[in-house]
Amino acid sequence: MPWSEAFLESQQTHTTTQVVGRELSYTQALNEALSLAMALDPNVFVLGQGVDDPSTMFGVTKGLAEQFGSPRVFETPLSEEGLTGICTGAAMHGLRPVYCHNRPDFLLLAFNQIVNHASKIHYMDNGQNRVPMVIWSAIGRGWGSGAQHSQAIQGLLMSVPGLKIVMPSTPYDAKGLMLSAIADNNPVLIFEHRWLMKQQGVVPEGIYNVPIGKGIYRERGTDLSIIGTSHALALAQQALASLKEQGISADVVDLRTLKPLDHEIILESVKKTGRALIVDTGWAMGGVCAEIGCVIAENCPQILKAPIKRVGLPDLPTPAGHTLEQLYYPSEESMARAILELLNPIGME
């Protein structure tokens, strides 16, 4: 087993959930969502480089080609812009594409079709056309992924009208949000995180939907609100657990989707705790953390007991080498430090 895979194995965790029942891995949950959606609707098709190769997109598309046939599950030429436009046109004419990419970095080749076309067509066409498509990718981190295989670009896309952005963090959500995304009549970008993919969690059988645009409390507490999605939130939750003995408790708000953004749950929680730690897997500058921070600052500045704190990536490209990587990424320890600083801000003690 290459050490990268061994490392991923070590990231296995169990989703904390009240529900008991059948457990699946994160990728099995996604695979089941795709299989159910394809069985339900003959217009759903799956494409991407690797969806029908031995790796089957980390196992997410495993068995689909055998089950549904190659016209509906196919490998693509390396033409990200072209294929995104092709998906857009197919979606405008009755199909529901799910276009899978190993990494979000490759979506940067398709920005013309995502930003100039797919996101705007429903509006520009005065509601006469719709673009129901899913663009799926998995954010990488570590083992030398570097500046071009680890980017979390949700912040670049958050300001584009007409898009929806989904960032699941549990097997249950991964399946329910994939089913919601496929059923949605708009272009939906799903950003998974590679480090969440070995999780096991309770996943109900059959079709169910996790609503797009609605966050959820993972924990309830009093001292601060930790707000974010995906692996960044998981890291923050680990940090919080390490501080439990010090009597620190927090609301942990998993937004699940970044666009539409659930202002209600953000403001409800921050109005209760008065402190906000905002976390994201992307760059802190001008990104998701900045937007959420601004929502809080604009709506309830008088309630804040301490300045907003954000933990994202520094304003640097991701270094590829191991040592620099350790210095670059937030860790459980740095998240814990951020929590403590928020509770005891310098100059406000």
Binding site: G85, I86, N116, N129
Partner: peptide
Amino acid sequence: GSSAIVAGAVPIATGAALSAQLR
């Protein structure tokens, strides 16, 4: 439809043809 981005509609039209073929 049409696109004001040069060549922007070319893949979209191609997707319309894919839809005709698959459906």
